[in-house]
Structures are given as C-alpha cells and as structure tokens.
Design a protein around this nucleic acid. Structure first.
Lengths: 234, 234
DNA sequence: CGATCGATTGAGCCCTCTCAAGAGAGGTGG
DNA sequence: CCACCTCTCTTGAGAGGGCTCAATCGATCG
C-alpha cells in the first residue's frame, strides 16, 4: 500500500498501537482518491467498508423522505466515517460526499472486524470515536432545542474554524468550499436566513464572506452571540 | 446478588453470552432501587459506574448554561445508560432521574472495563448499544431540522407508545408518568404549545390526555401527521 | 458569451414562543 | 374531613423570529 505508516500512526484511531500493529492494520486497507463532489458511499446501500479520511473534507448527510437534506457531520482529516458496520447496521443511513478533492482509506467491514478482535486497542479507539460522535450529536440536539438561528450559526462557524481553520492576515479562514446551503443544512435553517445573517455580520466587520468561503475576522463577536443568554424557554 | 440470571440473560447487552459468563458479569454488579424523582447520577459529577435499567423508567437530561432543560433520552427496561466511561468521558454530560420507582444495576467503571476485555461479546454489545444511541441522536437532529412541532410531537408519542406502551380498551397507554413539560423537553418545544396540540388532538378523539398520562386512541391519525409532507425547506 | 450555480435582497405571512391568568388534581397537616 | 398549598395543565392575547416565494445579481466554467 502506498500509505506511509508514519503518516497515520499518530491519528486517534491508531492511538497506542505500535508501528508493527499499525502496519498490519494498514496492510488490509485500500487507499483511494475522491474528486470534489463525488460520493464515497450512498445512503441506503449495503455497508461494505469502513472509512478513514486522510486528506480533504467529506460531507455526511441524509435526505429525508420529504426531500430535505441535512448535514449530519462534516468530516475533516483523520476522522473515521461510514462506521455503520461496527455498530451493527447493515445499510448506510447517510451519504458521504467529498466537498473537495480528498484521499480516503477504506477497510472491508469483515477485515475491520477481524482486526478489531486482534487488536483490542483498535476496538477501544473505535468505541471512543463513536462515543465522541454521540456526544456531538446529543450536543446538537440540545442546541437545536434551545438556541436561536444566530447562535447555532455562530457556533457552527466557530466549530468549523476550530477544526479546519487556517490563520490568515484577516483572521481565521475556513479551509474548504462551504456554500450557504451547506451552512443552512448544518444549522437547520434556510439559505435565505443564513445569507441575511452573514451579510449583517459582514457589514459589522465580524466576518468576510464570498462564494463558498467564510473568514472569521472577529471570532470574539461570534462567541458573544453564542453566549447571548436571552430568556430561557418556559 | 439478588438478581436472577434468567431475568437478564436475554437482554440485548448480554446477547450471545452463556449463562456462566452472564453470571460472572452479574457477580460484579450492584442492584439498587431508585424512588420516583430521585437522581441516579448528576450532570457534571465524575463517572464511577455504568448502569443497566431493570425496571421502571429513567429520564436522561441535560441543563444548559442558560437554564433550559432538554431530555436527551428516556430509558426503558433493559437499556444501559451513564455509559460515558466506556466512551472515554470522565464526567457525566447529563443527569439521570427516575420518573417512576425503578430498579437499576450498576457496575464500577473499572470492573466493566475488565469484564469487556474478558468477554469480547460484552464489548461488542456495548458498541452496538452506543451505536444505536448514535443513530437515534442523529435521527433527532434530522427531525429537529426539518419537521414542525406537530410532527415531532406525534413522532415522540408514537415512539414512547411503541417502547413503553400498554394495550388498553381505548388504545395504547403510555406506561409511566409523563408531564407536558417532559414532552416539551423531548420535542424542543414549550409546555404551552404541547398542551394546545394535545388538546386539539383530544377534541378530535385521537388521544386521551390527563394529568401525567397520555393514551393513543388512534395511532393512525398520529402517523398521518408525521407523514404529512409539506413543502420541503429551502 | 451564454448557461448554470451560488448569493443577495425584499415583501409578507405564519408558526411558535412569550407572558398572564386561572382551573384542576393531588397531597398534607390540622 | 376540610382547608390549604403546590404542581400540572389549560386557554387567551399578542408579538416576533424565521420561513416562503419571487426576482435579481454576480461568478465561474465550458
């Protein structure tokens, strides 16, 4: 395999594994390039593999029966996704699409099962990764239940900047193509409301927005929006 | 321990374990009664144990910094909760409270770790349980993003009836005390809106509501509300 | 240079929240 | 057994946040 052990051995999913075990695990993996806009897998299809994102960004989304699309998660470098098999699910409940040119490692589900049995640390790390995703999802439920669009929006931008931010002269730039539609689907809002809020923040000099790009010029201001405690609900 | 193996061996978390292993696992557990309204553990405190609900119902909730309470999950018989340790979290991100008199098994976190290592099936079942919770949480994110209060409300009632329903002459009764406030905190709404909708449904003969009780007389009508596809967003 | 996709902006409305007031239900103590 | 208190639930009136729909503009690409 063309993937160097040293390039991945320090990822959370391999934490604690020695180089040899790591290599053994990589041995069974398959590396592939995914062009921008291409799907890694589609919602509803049978689960064949488990995936690790090496480079790029992948959008994990679900389409509802009514045709609404919701972004469940945005995976950045080092993250695992499509781990439905490890959780005992037979068909993917979501789709995964590259939002920019990406590099993905994949393991056949069966091989991953065997590897997990052979390297308990791998199983533990998988559990931990899934646990983190659970935390994240529960946080989002709480946010969706209690916060206003402004707050969810600011929170989402800060989160993205934190994970995939890139320092520039102006502030922190979000590092990959991100449409207003993406943002809307991550916050449970609409492109119209998102556009309006971002425009308003841009007027105040807090952010810089352009086609598929957002730069946070004044993160403190966004943090203040998140913290803005209005009257609690009922 | 006063807990009979046969009473728990068929729970999902013990799936595949033979009676002997099962007994070995139970050996390290501690059984306790929790009176209605009493907390099993509190948000923010250190994680000492992992819990399995034997009888009753437990409300898993989080209080936000702004003072809003959100019900993350309602655990019914056979469910595990407070499994933060297995996911590598040091302090409980939520509180767990008995909504009726309940019986709970608990394992010290360290003991559970050792047992998981010794019985791989136990670890696998734990992963599966957490995976299901992740699915559930992601579903809720999607619902909160795309559905109206009516739909979330109907869905929640159907789900509760499905899990903890009790056939009666009139229909399916939800089997434990459930206040309008609980429902509001499960759906991301307010007691006022919940009360209004339930009143309206009661007028139409679809449900029967009284103090802390709901009976579904016409589940089909609720299912129709859930399926009601209006114009998709954006 | 046309076509397509993304972003912006305005007008209007509706769903849901907020606030206020009161009615039942149940529990407790005298 | 009644009075009282607390907790739950109901209902009304009103306001507003965010959605819907429509139209336009700008950018990118073949």
């Amino acid at each position: 395999m063309p993937v160097d052990v040293s390039a991945v051995s320090n990822l959370p999913i391999f934490a604690g594994l020695d180089a040899e075990s790591c290599e053994r695990v990589l041995w069974e993996s398959h590396s592939s390039q995914v062009a921008q806009g291409k799907a890694v897998f589609q919602q509803g299809v049978e689960v064949f593999s488990i995936y690790l994102l090496l480079r790029g960004h992948v959008r994990v989304s679900r389409i509802t029966e009514s045709g609404d699309q919701v972004i469940v998660r945005l995976v950045s470098g080092g993250g695992i996704f499509g781990a439905a098999h490890a959780m005992g699910v037979a068909t993917h409940p979501v789709s995964a699409t590259a939002v920019e040119d990406s590099v993905v490692l994949s393991w056949p589900a069966t091989a991953w099962g065997a590897l997990s049995a052979r390297f308990p640390l791998l199983a533990a790390n998988t559990l931990k990764a899934i646990g983190e995703k659970l935390q994240e999802a529960q946080n989002r439920v709480v946010e969706m239940s209690t916060e206003h669009v402004d707050q969810r929006l600011a929170r989402t931008l800060l989160r993205l900047a934190d994970r995939s931010g890139c320092r520039t002269d102006d502030g922190v730039a979000i590092n990959f193509p991100l449409t207003r539609r993406d943002i809307a689907e991550m916050t449970g809002s609409t492109i119209f409301t998102v556009s309006r809020r971002l425009s308003s923040w841009e007027e105040r000099g807090w952010i810089d927005g352009s086609r598929q790009r957002v730069v946070l010029k004044h993160p403190q201001a966004l943090r203040a929006i998140v913290a803005d405690v209005r009257a609690p609900r009922s």
